[in-house]
Write a protein that binds this DNA or RNA. Structure first.
Lengths: 146, 146
DNA sequence: ATTGGTGCAAATCCTTTGCAATAGC
DNA sequence: GCTATTGCAAAGGATTTGCACCAAT
């Protein structure tokens, strides 16, 4: 249950190890993501980063977020809120989404669905549906390209 | 496991019962959704409907799809493929999404996650992740207006 | 006759792309 | 110095909005 959020040093080490360059934009985006403790959209991160590091561009923010996902430092969440959210918590866990205000909250990964719903209700959330999305590579794509 | 897809007559009856008007656009959108057996995007439905019913507009298609969801005749799926998909199958079930080609397939609602993954693999799908999204009304919104 | 639905046009918003300039190695 | 990254400008695409017209009741 510890957050295991990454430090700036972790990112620097990882980038070096992968032969990728260390840039102030990359550090700034990670820092922003870490400080918000998850569930921030690219436009939000863009605005915050730009405040600290003027001149930063929106395409750069998207590129950095994609890089962080590739490196396994972040997860991209597409929960039907209209924007993609980025989550710095990398341990497996699930989410609840409010239909009215769009608020996203974490649900820990005790995969027993009944328990998960009970847990959500304990926080005052009123579930009205649950959907499991399994991602991967389909049979056709696996055959075509390994 | 029967599909329980709705007929045109069902829609007419439901619209009348709710005091909503019966229009050719509404019938056409439902028909298109039914014929595709799920997982169609608004732009796709728009194109098909327009072929049958020239002059139909894109905003109307969005409005009708939203109405169908309100009436419980369709489900809106936002699976991170870049577009919202609409599903005429209303029984609870889950989905697999291919990271490469975006293909969406149904997974039946045997909620035991392990069995679900096994089932997905049987079809040649290679799962690499699963996320459960619980929708509902959060504590704040429930308190404010619930 | 009423007014809910529709069509059109345009706007909004997130996200991606092309290319020249810059900065990390 | 090389070349990955960046910034800028612009494009792309899904979805929404405003308003006048039309058609279902």
């Amino acid at each position: 249950m510890t957050d295991a959020l990454l430090t700036t040093d972790d990112l620097v080490a990882l980038l070096r190890h992968r032969g990728r360059r260390v840039t102030s934009q990359r550090l700034a985006v990670l820092r922003e993501l870490r400080d918000r403790r998850g569930h921030a959209s690219a436009p939000e991160i863009f605005a915050s980063v730009r405040a600290r590091l003027p001149g930063t561009s929106s395409p750069t923010v998207y590129a950095v977020l994609e890089l962080l996902c590739e490196l396994g430092l972040a997860r991209k969440l597409e929960l039907g809120v209209g924007v993609a959210l980025y989550d710095a918590r990398t341990e497996p866990h699930h989410h609840s989404v409010c239909r009215r205000c769009g608020d996203v909250a974490d649900l820990d990964a005790e995969l027993d669905p009944a328990r998960l719903l009970t847990r959500a209700r304990e926080g005052g959330f009123r579930p009205d549906g649950a959907e499991l999305v399994v991602t991967g590579i389909c049979a056709g794509c696996a055959g075509a390209a390994g």
